[in-house]
Simulated scan of single mutants.
Amino acid sequence: MLSASVGAFLHLKAGWNQGGLLSSLVSIGLMMWLAATSHSKENQTKRLCILAAFGGTMGLGLGPLLDFAIAVNPQIIMTALISTAIIFVCFSVSALYAQRRSYLYLGGFLGSALTILLVTSLLNIFMQSFAVFQFGLYAGVAIFCGFVVYDTQLIVEKHNNGDNDYIWHSVDLFIDFINIFRRLVIILGLNEKKKKRNN
């Protein structure tokens, strides 16, 4: 989260206007590099550096969205961040206190829902339907809330089976957090713009 904040700061304050496609491609490349690097003790420092770079490029990728939020109302960013943190903590804690493996069945459903959402979003490029776009935003928040629960239980289960790769587990939860935050910023920004138009 700290490296993502640095990436967002570099876009907003230091003039690194590299957010968007380039930073997305770099972050995907870094994630693949991290996945391909063995999680032995010798590689721990290297993998932490890759993780930090991944977080930074993800934060850089949020730059254009943060520009939009600041133009509408700067308070949107803090509201979205606090809301995302509350959602994340609540769903993680519920997963930790739930019966062991009780939410792992969600994996297939969430994967299918995410695929449908992706296909719908791609089709909407041609349809240009605002209603479909809004549905995708709210459905995306719900899906990634489900992923927080699923990923938390999956990480606990992996740990119990001897998988202690906390660096990769951090990536799973970080991606969930960023996706919820991104969608909340857009939802709050659109609602604020609507209010301003009505006034």
Score class of each variant (00 low, 15 high):
residue 10 L to Y: 01
residue 10 L to T: 05
residue 10 L to C: 09
residue 11 H to Y: 13
residue 12 L to A: 08
residue 15 G to T: 03
residue 16 W to Y: 14
residue 16 W to F: 15
residue 17 N to I: 04
residue 17 N to E: 11
residue 22 L to P: 01
residue 22 L to Q: 10
residue 22 L to K: 11
residue 23 S to H: 00
residue 23 S to A: 08
residue 23 S to G: 01
residue 24 S to E: 04
residue 25 L to N: 00
residue 25 L to D: 01
residue 26 V to T: 08
residue 28 I to C: 08
residue 28 I to N: 05
residue 28 I to Q: 05
residue 29 G to N: 12
residue 30 L to N: 07
residue 31 M to W: 12
residue 31 M to I: 11
residue 31 M to R: 03
residue 31 M to P: 01
residue 31 M to F: 14
residue 32 M to H: 03
residue 32 M to R: 07
residue 33 W to S: 10
residue 33 W to R: 10
residue 35 A to P: 00
residue 35 A to R: 10
residue 37 T to Y: 03
residue 38 S to T: 12
residue 39 H to Y: 12
residue 39 H to M: 06
residue 39 H to S: 13
residue 41 K to Q: 14
residue 41 K to D: 14
residue 41 K to I: 15
residue 42 E to H: 10
residue 42 E to I: 13
residue 43 N to T: 06
residue 44 Q to D: 08
residue 45 T to G: 02
residue 48 L to Y: 14
residue 48 L to S: 02
residue 48 L to N: 07
residue 49 C to N: 09
residue 50 I to P: 11
residue 51 L to P: 03
residue 51 L to Y: 15
residue 51 L to A: 13
residue 53 A to M: 15
residue 55 G to T: 00
residue 56 G to V: 04
residue 56 G to A: 14
residue 57 T to D: 01
residue 57 T to N: 09
residue 60 L to I: 00
residue 62 L to I: 12
residue 62 L to N: 06
residue 63 G to P: 03
residue 63 G to F: 01
residue 64 P to A: 09
residue 65 L to K: 08
residue 65 L to Y: 07
residue 65 L to H: 07
residue 65 L to W: 02
residue 66 L to F: 12
residue 67 D to F: 06
residue 68 F to G: 01
residue 68 F to N: 05
residue 69 A to F: 05
residue 69 A to I: 10
